[in-house]
Simulated assay, not measured.
Amino acid sequence: MPKGFKSSLQNRAVARALALWRMESGLSLTEVTERVNWSTGKTSMMQNGLVPITDADVVALALVYRIDDARWKPVYWGAQRARNPHTFDLVTNGAMPCVDWTYSEVEAEASHMRVVTLDVLPPMVWTPEYLAAVRGGSDRDYDDLHRARILGQLDPDPTLQVDLVVAQAVLRRPVGGALVMADQLFQLALFAQLPGVRVYLVPDSAGVVAGMTSFTLLSFREPQFDDVVYLDCPHCGVWLERETDRLPYLELYGRLMSTTLTDAETVEHLHRAAQDLKDGAR
């Protein structure tokens, strides 16, 4: 393993493809090793994104797994792009489509998520009615199975920590109507009680914090995986991997946390806001 190696999101997208190919083939690590003439450790580390993956590695495994051209070529180009994304994009100008990744795939690998929401709540806490009302149902490639898996990581023995920072203005935005929003806030209060979750409210009295925007900062157990920041934009999701790009969001998170209510005060506020919405609807 190269000293100081950090696995980019592109390298990890290639790794997921290789892991899927082996699962589909039904071959064991030993059987793969016999065909490619390298160690089982190399195959295992590659399909977990813990080492750099070359385009030659991709071709060799595609032959072993009998992957057709339409499927192996984006992985091949992805391995090339992982070495130097900026240069690859300049040279190819988008002509060579690379294997991609989704928000849910990256979230499934996280061990700690710090989520700041100033507009709508994050998908992992949505009720079906809230989902139907917000942005026409768009939900970052989430599905019910992924949501259930994430919730399973938060309770009863959490393998994931979620710290959710919510602006008070979000509670006053009746997405789907007062009753739908009230049910959503009750659901958020229940979510806050899970062992792996802490929810903090930024009260209106805190005023405006410079640079406030919604984002998610994801951290991982593996030392080869650096933190990443995700921004949910209208045209696409934006991923920030460089430390200089991530740092302003980490600093913003710290400024916001200095203004929040405690998690216990936040839950009490959520119940009160939900009940006010219910009472007003009647």
Rank of each mutant, 00 (worst) to 15 (best):
M212E: 14
F186K: 11
Q193T: 10
Y249S: 03
A110L: 03
L145K: 12
R114P: 02
D245M: 03
K3T: 00
Q161C: 01
V166A: 08
F88D: 10
V209H: 08
N93F: 11
R114M: 12
L27V: 01
S25D: 00
T213E: 13
K3E: 05
T87F: 11
S258I: 04
I67H: 00
A79E: 09
D163E: 15
D226T: 05
S8L: 03
A95P: 00
R272I: 02
Y142P: 04
G207F: 07
A182S: 15
M1Y: 05
L63F: 10
A56C: 04
V166M: 09
D227F: 03
S214F: 07
S7E: 02
S28T: 10
V228N: 11
P223I: 02
T33V: 01
M1H: 10
A273C: 13
Y76Q: 05
G211A: 04
S28F: 06
L252S: 07
L20F: 06
D226V: 00
V197R: 04
W38R: 10
T40N: 12
I53G: 12
A264W: 01
G211E: 03
A82K: 13
R81Q: 11
L217G: 02
H269W: 04
Q80H: 05
Y142C: 10
R140G: 01
D55R: 15
K73H: 13
E243I: 03
A56N: 11
P122S: 12
V229T: 07
N11R: 12
V229K: 09
L194C: 02
M23C: 02
G137D: 08
M1P: 05
A19N: 06
T213D: 13
T40V: 06
L231Q: 13
A274F: 02
P195L: 02
D100M: 11
G177K: 03
Y65F: 15
E129T: 05
M124Y: 06
P122Y: 14
D263N: 07
W38S: 12
L63R: 15
L240A: 06
S214W: 06
Q275L: 02
Q47C: 03
S111P: 00
V180S: 09
S104E: 10
A274D: 05
E31R: 12
V115T: 15
M212C: 05
E265H: 07
N11D: 09
F5Q: 08
D139G: 13
M45P: 06
W101A: 15
G196S: 04
M257I: 04
D55A: 15
A82T: 08
